[in-house]
């Protein structure tokens, strides 16, 4: 389906001993899905904390922060 799903097959067909797959996302390092999930969670917490400190007192609800984080997280997992 996605580009990510095709990667391992390419590696399996290659005869050379595990070649580091070229970083294919926008993140500066090579990642697998678990790393990207982890990054998303870390960013989620960071966004929420910053939100609580600076934006919520202005009146914006925390749910907006969750929305932004989930969207960003999905984007990272998808494309990172």
């Amino acid at each position: 389906m996605t580009q990510t799903d095709d990667e391992p097959i390419d590696i399996l067909e290659d005869d050379a001993p595990p070649p580091p797959a070229p970083a294919h996302g926008f993140l500066p390092i090579e990642t697998n899905w678990f790393d990207r999930l982890f990054i998303s969670l870390v960013i989620w917490v960071a966004i929420c904390l910053v939100w609580l400190r600076f934006i919520e007192p202005l009146g914006a609800d925390l749910y907006i922060a969750h929305g932004v984080s989930v969207a960003l997280g999905l984007y990272i997992i998808w494309k990172g």
């Binding site: 929420c48 904390l49 609580l52 400190r53 919520e56 925390l62």
Partner: peptide
């Protein structure tokens, strides 16, 4: 909910 964290950041 997030009340503890709300207090913590201040």
């Amino acid at each position: 909910g997030a009340d503890n964290f709300r207090r913590l950041v201040f």
